[in-house]
Design a protein around this nucleic acid. Structure first.
Length: 478
RNA sequence: GGCGGCGUAGCCAAGCGGCUAAGGCGGAGGUCUGCAAAAUCUCUAUUCGUCGGUUCGAUUCCGAUCGCCGCCUCCA
């Protein structure tokens, strides 16, 4: 089977074929760095992390660009988000940007989200944005009014192609007051005139000002990926107007298709209502990480398809965490048993089992990144492995190594759900092993009281001990 | 008003024309075990918001209806 992606532009799943055979050019709308990242960001970037990882797993060279918005993204009040943040924290706008860009990457790193290959800042690409605005004016697609430049939607009949809207059916001013400078309420700003007190402003052919929000994505994506992108991703709430505007301005400027596959993920809800900063009901990633291990959050997100909304609550993440722990236990068991064995020469029946599991896994991922089903495949695999290990007298070392490798490929490389190294830094290891050894003697003497006490106290210190006929296993608890 | 999405077991969640409606959590019982944990086995939706229609056949398609949610100038 081949990879099919749900293309929001066509509203169907389509066979994925990049423009250039082995390379995928992918752009995802990044954060506006004026506050701490929240779990909505987590869902978004986990979603596209999976896309990147899976495409790489399939052998593509993926060039992944994700912008950092640090200018021009306004609040409904018309205030620039960055300036609002800077005022709130009494720092320079660019200090604020630096602060929250770091916070953003720290949060994403914690969730095991691979960093983009390029993270361009909007404020660092103002000349390019001015250039594109000039091009649009020259082409007759934009007009200047009083130092601001607007895209003329009437000159672009295809406006609405992505969101399926007719601009004339929309409620002008539904949320933000209509700007009288515009010829049509649907026209959108490419360049905005700046008041003298506006902290972020640049010289332009139209006077001092700053770029509109949509233009940065067009400019930076095309600068680093070329005029036609294979994949452009983002949240559903940005489908209109943001992505619609990107298409209009990009295609008006270049005359070629801007994006071949549009991917939109669904929202995070809290008590069934959208979580957003404007509603004030958001949970930051840092807060969530205090309550839940990062992998539990990641697993929780991946147990829902990316085009479905996810209702965030502590109890559902805990439930997900229980399931995750089972998957992790199998992996740790395999890791311990396989040690440094190599998979070379594993018997045919085990090879066959791994082949069919990988194939089932890929079938699910090929179907528009169906991670819930892909995880179900791993649960089945986990059960098979546990049975194999308990039922065989002495499991084949090469088989164990192959199973471990296969497990890691799916759960680790593609889904990003496994710890990087099984043997973390363990300064306490020799001491724990000493206790385990003492406990072994106590148990052989049937001194249950003391051996149980050691087990209980180790548990309190974060070390779980599991006894079996063949001795005791221990591990750090997640 | 316009555009779009969603309603599947106690909870989370796949499936979207036809095998017994995946998987996870929780629950019940069994195996293993000094106990605990882990692991494993069995059971846990005659039914997919409601009502019609199309069809040999619908959770899946169409229509209506109820409920929930998102977007409509700049929220991941």
């Amino acid at each position: 089977m081949s990879l099919y992606i749900y293309n929001s532009l066509k509203r169907i799943k389509q066979l994925f074929e990049p423009l250039e055979a082995d390379t995928v050019r992918m752009y995802v709308c990044g954060p506006t760095v004026y506050d701490y990242p929240h779990i909505g960001h987590a869902k978004s970037y986990i979603t596209f992390d999976i896309v990147v990882r899976y495409l790489r797993h399939l052998g593509y060279r993926v060039k992944y660009v994700q912008n950092i918005t640090d200018v021009g993204h306004l609040l409904d009040s018309g205030e620039d988000r960055i300036m609002r943040g800077a005022r709130r924290e009494k720092v320079d706008p660019m200090e604020l940007v630096e602060r929250y860009t770091r916070a953003y990457f720290e949060a994403m790193d914690a969730l095991n989200i691979l960093r983009p290959d390029i993270s361009p800042h909007a404020a660092a690409h103002v000349p390019e944005q001015i250039e594109m605005v000039e091009k649009l004016i020259a082409g007759g697609y934009a007009y200047e009014v009083n130092g601001s430049v607007y895209f003329d939607v009437s000159r672009w009949p295809k406006y609405g192609i992505l969101s399926g809207r007719d601009v004339n059916d929309q409620q002008a001013g539904a949320r933000v007051d209509v700007n009288p400078e515009k010829k049509h309420p649907a026209d959108f700003a490419l360049w905005k005139k700046a008041d003298p007190e506006h902290l972020m402003q640049w010289n332009s052919p139209w006077g001092r000002g700053y770029p509109g929000w949509h233009i940065e994505c067009s400019v930076m994506s095309m600068k680093y990926l070329g005029q036609t992108l294979d994949i452009h991703g983002g949240g559903m709430e940005n489908q209109f107007p943001h992505h619609e505007c990107e298409i209009a301005q990009s295609e008006a400027a270049t005359g070629v298709p801007f994006v071949r596959y549009w991917m939109h993920h669904n929202m995070v809800l809290v008590d069934s209502v959208k979580m957003s900063k404007s509603l004030g009901n958001f949970t930051t990633v840092a807060e969530a990480l205090k309550k839940h291990p990062a992998m539990h959050i990641r697993f929780f997100v991946l147990q829902t398809h990316y085009r479905s909304p996810v209702d965030f609550s502590d109890s559902v993440i805990q439930s997900a965490g229980q399931g995750y722990q089972r998957l992790l236990n199998t992996y740790m068991l395999l890791g311990r048993l396989a040690g440094s064995e190599i998979a070379e020469g594993a018997p045919e029946d085990v090879r066959e089992m791994c082949r069919s599991v990988i194939s089932a896994f890929q079938d699910q991922m090929d179907d528009d990144f169906n991670t819930p089903n892909a995880i179900a495949v791993i649960f089945d695999f986990s059960r098979q492995i546990n049975k194999y290990i308990t039922e065989s007298e002495k499991p084949e070392p090469s088989s164990l190594a192959l199973l471990c490798e296969t497990y890691k490929k799916m759960a680790g490389d593609v889904l990003g759900l496994l710890p990087g190294r099984l043997e973390e830094e363990r300064p306490a290891k020799p001491f724990i092993e000493l206790l385990i050894e003492i406990r072994r003697v106590l148990r052989s003497e049937k001194n249950w009281a003391l051996s149980d006490r050691i087990r209980d106290q180790l548990a309190e210190l974060g070390v779980s001990v599991k006894d079996s006929k063949n001795g005791s296993e221990w591990d750090y608890q997640m």
